[in-house]
Amino acid sequence: MNNTYIPQFTEEEMKTVNLHISKYPKPMAAVMPLLWMIQEKYGWISLEAMKYVGDILNLPHDHVLGVATFYTMYFKKPYGKNHLQVCTNVSCMLRGGYEIFNHISGKLGIKNKEVTGDGLFSIEEVECLGSCATAPMLQLNNKEFYENLTIDNVDQLIDSLKNSK
């Protein structure tokens, strides 16, 4: 994950940007898809990137800042290469969500929203991800769900992530 970067969309990406803008009657609505694009590309959303998005959509910079900070899935700081988002909400908690969170936290030696020294892992306690029947669960990098977790298969997951680099 880049700790610093100069936000810039390529020509190809600008086509996607325009596609997003064309979906809505007003360009302001494209701010969320554009922030997603930034995060996909650079891993997190810096202040410069927010200004950049604001300039594309002709919005005040602080409006973009307001949106980016309102939604929890936009990362306002760089996390590890593998960002583990463990649910500890009621349904997961009843089936051991906190045990999974504490186990990973202890194993990697990091607390909530911290990154390991090698930059490989970070962990976050998140709210319900709609996977209550297959609890406990975690989400990796805002994408895949890993469900029905046990201490054993969490260990396996972390090992395989370590080896895949």
Binding site: E127, C128, C132
Partner: peptide
């Protein structure tokens, strides 16, 4: 948007 803890039907 289905985010209510305990609700996972739309998925």
């Amino acid at each position: 948007d289905e985010s209510e803890p305990g609700s996972f039907k739309d998925r």
